[in-house]
């Protein structure tokens, strides 16, 4: 077993070179390079964490924006509906007013027309009376040979007409 049989002659060399090479590994690699490798890992972890936080914040901001936008849209919509309703009411009111106005005009004209019709009928009636009284006096003169004056004839006709 060389580990034992060579121990006396090789132990110093083994220890010396182990100290040299393990010392190099510890000081150059362990102390020099490993912290830098781990710093890179830490940096990346921090970066990832901050990126995640930023993404979370952005998501929250987007949600808040959407919420605000939705509230504003709702408000705008209700405002628009109020405007439409007001316009509708306004339109209905003005239409009614114009209808009333027009109705009034129609009434006035109807009254005038009715008055004219009345007048015309009265005139026509008067005409008929005159014609009838003339005809009556003619008929009487022809049939009875009596001359009746115009006033008598008219009274008789009126009486006969209104009877």
């Amino acid at each position: 077993m060389p580990q034992i049989s060579q121990l006396a002659t090789t132990y110093s060399s083994q220890i010396f070179w182990l100290v040299v090479f393990f010392g190099f590994v510890f000081f150059v690699i362990g102390r020099g390079m490993v912290p830098r490798v781990m710093a890179t890992v830490d940096l990346r972890d921090r970066q990832i964490a901050s990126d995640l936080a930023a993404a979370e914040a952005a998501r929250r901001a987007a949600n808040a924006d959407e919420e605000a936008w939705r509230a504003e849209a709702n408000q705008r919509r209700s405002e628009a509906q109020a405007v439409i309703a007001a316009a509708k009411a306004e339109a209905a009111k003005s239409a009614e007013a114009r209808l009333v106005e027009a109705g009034k005009g129609v009434d006035v004209r109807m009254l005038a027309a009715e008055a004219r019709i009345e007048q015309a009928r009265d005139a026509a009636l008067g005409e008929i009376e005159t014609v009838a009284s003339e005809a009556t006096s003619d008929i009487v003169a022809r049939l009875a040979g009596i001359t009746v004056d115009e006033a008598t004839a008219r009274a008789a006709v009126k009486e006969a007409l209104h009877a």
Binding site: T9, T10, S12, S13, Q14, V20, F21, V25, M33
Partner: peptide
């Protein structure tokens, strides 16, 4: 004290160099 550069020391050196290359590659 004898400090002969033996095959054992040689392979310590090889392990050290390979480890150095490995870690340096990750730097």
């Amino acid at each position: 004290y004898n400090v002969a550069f033996t095959n054992s020391a040689m392979w310590m050196a090889v392990a050290t160099v390979v480890l150095l290359i490995f870690v340096a590659g990750g730097l």
